[in-house]
Design a protein around this nucleic acid. Structure first.
Lengths: 228, 228
DNA sequence: GCAAAAGTGTTGGGAGTACACCCATGA
DNA sequence: TCATGGGTGTACTCCCAACACTTTTGC
């Protein structure tokens, strides 16, 4: 190491995903300041001097959604630091992905004129749909979520604490954009050790015969995985 | 965003892995300066003012090994930014993983008193074996490499440009710490479309009947994956 | 010839798929 | 009784692990 330490600004940006209205949706904020004033962007902000990266992401999440971050799955995605990614200064952003069950309506933050859920399809198709390099970050975040559904029980992060197997299947179908055989899906997830825990309760909220309610079991990875 | 931009130092650190002497080994440098002077650490250094993150990692790799980074597989791993991870200042490091075939002997860099290959076992077992939080970074990097072998053709990055299937199998066995059936492995990798390309040449460098030499094919992911 | 490694054939079991079928509720 | 979704049974296919066997070299 040399004695020079070029100064950087370090931010966190968040890809907050949920399943709403049979679509995978991402939380976006409308920027109130230059650059990109009036454009949609991912929520995020500067890391504070004595704050860890994950803490900063959790704080931003709380500020943007008004809900305690301990109710989310939150993980680091990747860092983006192209020299020209922010016209104001040299900035490195540490992007995170958060997965959430259906949330209260988002609240506008201090420097966001508006906050809204958007289906991911449009910004995924248009690289200029979001400010900065946020379209690329969104692409990477969505792909992370899609692949993690294969080999972890993370689909449950999109569900309420207690859920039916059909609700879980809907998450897979929406996130992957596929259809799955309900019978085989049922057998597969109930047969994967540690994936689901039967609460004993039932519900008829989906119509038809009462469905058993489950909660997340102790597994952290799925053996065998569910493949797209 | 507010108008305050706390200053950070941004560095890159490298988990450079190779297969040598039937072991997975990592490139380490002995630190010449405080803090942690005399301790082993991962190679790395500060990102320059007009340099991208990947460019910085490639430059450090070149400085530490003396070999052109275009001959490596290099990918971003994760970022580490705990407020107290560097006693000198607030530092965020963007860790990368590099996978290499057997290399020329490492060269000591400008601020590294010594550079050496180490089997990964010892630093993986001892959290204090490396300076800073580098033992954690190494753990994450090794796990990344192990899992990527399952669903990408990345094992070839540990091989010379042309290699036999037995040499490829040795990579899997060493990185995963398992043994694999030579006959089934052979059938599996030759049957996975795009994994390998037959050069037509043969070699007897492994002894016994001549083995066909292969190079990496056009596949970027493995269908189906090879499972540990 | 013998040892060593390359490569092929065969077989049995386990997992995924497709789909028939029955169960339990609301209307 | 009918519609709707929950859940089980079954047969077929395909992949894969296990291992016998043949091929081709160096010594």
């Amino acid at each position: 190491m040399t004695t020079e330490h070029p100064p950087f600004a370090v931010t966190v940006d968040l890809v907050v995903l949920t399943v709403r209205d049979d679509a995978l949706q991402v939380l976006t904020v409308r920027r109130g300041e230059e650059p990109y004033a009036g454009r949609w962007a991912l929520p995020g902000g500067f890391v504070l001097p004595d704050e860890g990266l994950r803490d900063a992401a959790a704080r931003e999440l709380l500020e943007e959604t008004g809900v305690d971050a301990s109710h989310f799955h939150l993980e680091q995605l990747a860092s983006y630091g192209a020299p020209d990614r922010d016209p104001r200064m040299r900035t490195v952003t540490v992007a995170h992905v958060a997965l959430a069950a259906d949330l209260p309506a988002p609240v506008a933050g201090s420097d966001a004129a508006d906050a809204r859920w958007h289906p991911v399809e449009e910004p995924l198709a248009d690289p200029d749909a979001l400010a900065f390099d946020h379209a690329q970050i969104l692409r990477d975040g969505v792909e992370r979520a899609r692949s993690k559904l294969e080999y972890t029980p993370l689909a449950t992060a999109f569900c309420p604490a207690e859920f039916t197997i059909t609700e879980l299947r809907h998450v897979y179908e929406v996130v992957w954009g596929t259809t799955l055989d309900p019978r085989n899906f049922h057998r597969k997830v109930t047969g994967t050790d540690g994936f689901l825990e039967d609460t004993g309760a039932t519900t008829t909220r989906d119509g038809g015969r009462p469905a058993r309610l489950h909660r997340l079991g102790h597994a952290t990875t799925l053996h065998p995985p569910l493949l797209r």
